[in-house]
Amino acid sequence: MKKKVYSNLDEIVADVPDGARIMFGGFGGAGFPNNLIQALVRKGVKNITAISNNCGTRDGELGLMFKNNQITHIIASFPGPHANHFQERFAAEEVTLELVPQGILCERMRAAAAGLQGFYTTVGVGTEVAEGKEERVLEGKRCILEKPIHADFAFIKAHHGHGRKDDHCRSRRTRSPGFDRTGARDDARNLCAPYRAGERTPLCRIAPYRRKLCSTSRA
């Protein structure tokens, strides 16, 4: 069985190649796998396709990767008011953006995980989002066809994990629910790291179909 628990972050991302498609968990400033993002920055991978709700907050979250010009395409719903590094690259046409309604973004990720080739939705009908998409009327409603989004890796942030014995991770409150549990169900390999260095949790690398992620937290 492949090694799952690593003692340092750089080792986890060692085999992430240039051109990889990576899903990132997180919503706004909460729940982004910042330690893993920093490891990608140190590694200097290029030509990344990122799938993420947001595009970073100044130097935070994906901001660092845009600053370093490592991302060439991003699929996102809300770049965010302080995604200045992204906006600079976007204005300079160094990065392309596919803007997707938030719920459709995660549903397309979920479709990939669930082995569905797409689905029809009323969301976005008659808007820029519908451009170039097949349209038909179902149950009396205008709908557009949305296709799955696949990835090679899903990066998520865990609150704690049982790295030695198994590959369970838990998240905390709204930190994870963002996109983590949606993306991490895809056949991508999930890389997750505890949020704070020095925490007791070991670093985990989780193989597909072998994890039980983030059980729903109680309030």
Binding site: A76, P79, P101, I104, V129
Partner: peptide, 11 residues
């Protein structure tokens, strides 16, 4: 200026 952002509004 910028890309705009949809977020959850369309859903």
């Amino acid at each position: 200026k910028g890309s705009g952002g949809i977020g959850g509004a369309m859903d």
